[in-house]
Structure formats: structure tokens, C-alpha cells
Simulated assay, not measured.
Amino acid sequence: MSKQSRIQAVARAVQELQDATDLIDELAARRLGLNRTDLRCLSRLTARGPLTASELAAAAGLTGGAATTAIDRLERAGLAERARDTADRRRVLVRLTERGRGAVQEVWGPIADDARAELLQFSVTELELIETFLGRALRNQARHADRLRGETEGARPRPPAPG
């Protein structure tokens, strides 16, 4: 197989993985009674642990107001809570509740277990290569999210032409 053919095959596999991940996220959101923004916040709290509202907003790519609304919904669902930071009582952290941790484990635990089993099949050198690729792919996605965000925020409706 030529290098170009291999690149196309990898690109196809990445697209299919993204679509499969999107489907899992959609099904998980429905199962948990959340919208996709709330699910993204739940994901960030799972990955990073307790965060301030502003840290969560930045991690999830949201405005402060949108993050506050999402946090309110996660609290109403019993999946997250606001709590004073024990190290600095002035700070309020958003953290998963026991119910939230259980929901995350129920939905994504089996997926993570299967992924770990698959990764165990690779050598350390292969894992380093996979990690390098994923890091570059993530930077590429972040760069293009910034590009699209800027284009969306920069787009203003034009007034109608005179006449």
C-alpha cells in the first residue's frame, strides 16, 4: 500500500472513530437526560477533577454564562455539585457527585476497560507513536476549533443593501 493510500486509510479510520464517538456521546446524553453541552462539562469534570466555573468554561469551550447554566442543570440532575474549596474557602469548585461518578462509570467504564485491553496489545514504542499522533491530532482539532469559533464570532449579519 502506498503512503498516500495509507494516509487515506488512517483519515477514514479517524473519521469513523469520530462518528462512533459522536454516537456514543449522543446516546449517553439521552440516557443521562442531558444535552451535549452538559455532557461535555461532565466529561471535563471526569477528566480533570473539580474545577472552578471559569476553569470548566474554558475547558469546555463555553462562555461563563453558558457554563453556569450547564452547572445548574448538572446540579438539578444530581450529577455535579458546587462546593467550597477546602484549601481556599473563597473558591467554589464544581465536582462530580457520587451519582455523577456512578453514571460516568456505567456509561464509559466498559468502553475504557475495553480500550485498555486493546492498548495492552501494543508495544511501548507503538504506544509512544499512538500518543504522538493523538497529541498532534488534538492540537489540529483545537486549532481548527479556534478558527471556526473566530469565524462564527466574527460573523455579523449585514444590513440590507439600500434600494
Rank of each mutant, 00 (worst) to 15 (best):
R6A: 11
R6D: 04
Q8R: 14
A11C: 06
R12F: 10
A13N: 10
V14L: 15
E16P: 00
L17A: 14
D19H: 06
A20G: 04
A20H: 01
D22W: 10
L23I: 11
A28E: 08
R30K: 13
G33T: 10
R36P: 00
T37I: 15
R40I: 07
C41V: 07
C41S: 09
C41G: 01
S43Y: 15
R44S: 04
R44H: 07
L45T: 01
T46G: 10
T46Q: 15
A47G: 04
G49I: 03
P50H: 06
P50M: 08
L51F: 02
L51R: 06
A53I: 07
A53V: 13
A53T: 15
E55P: 05
E55V: 06
L56T: 05
L56P: 01
A57Y: 00
A58I: 01
A59S: 07
A60D: 04
L62E: 02
T63Q: 10
T63W: 06
G64F: 11
G64S: 05
A66S: 14
T69I: 09
A70G: 08
I71L: 11
R73G: 03
R73W: 09
L74G: 01
E75D: 06
E75I: 12
R76N: 04
A77T: 06
G78I: 03
L79Y: 13
E81W: 09
E81K: 12
E81N: 08
R82I: 02
R82F: 03
A83K: 15
R84P: 07
D85T: 07
T86P: 05
T86S: 14
A87S: 13
A87L: 12
D88N: 15
D88C: 10
R89P: 08
R89A: 07
R89K: 14
R90D: 11
L93G: 05
R95V: 05
L96D: 00
L96T: 05
L96I: 05
R101A: 12
G102V: 03
V104W: 15
Q105S: 01
E106C: 09
E106K: 11
V107F: 10
V107M: 04
D114F: 13
A115E: 12
A115C: 10
A117G: 05
L119K: 01
Q121R: 15
Q121D: 12
F122G: 00
F122E: 00
E126G: 03
L127K: 11
I130K: 14
I130R: 13
E131V: 07
T132S: 13
R136S: 05
R136W: 14
L138N: 08
L138Q: 15
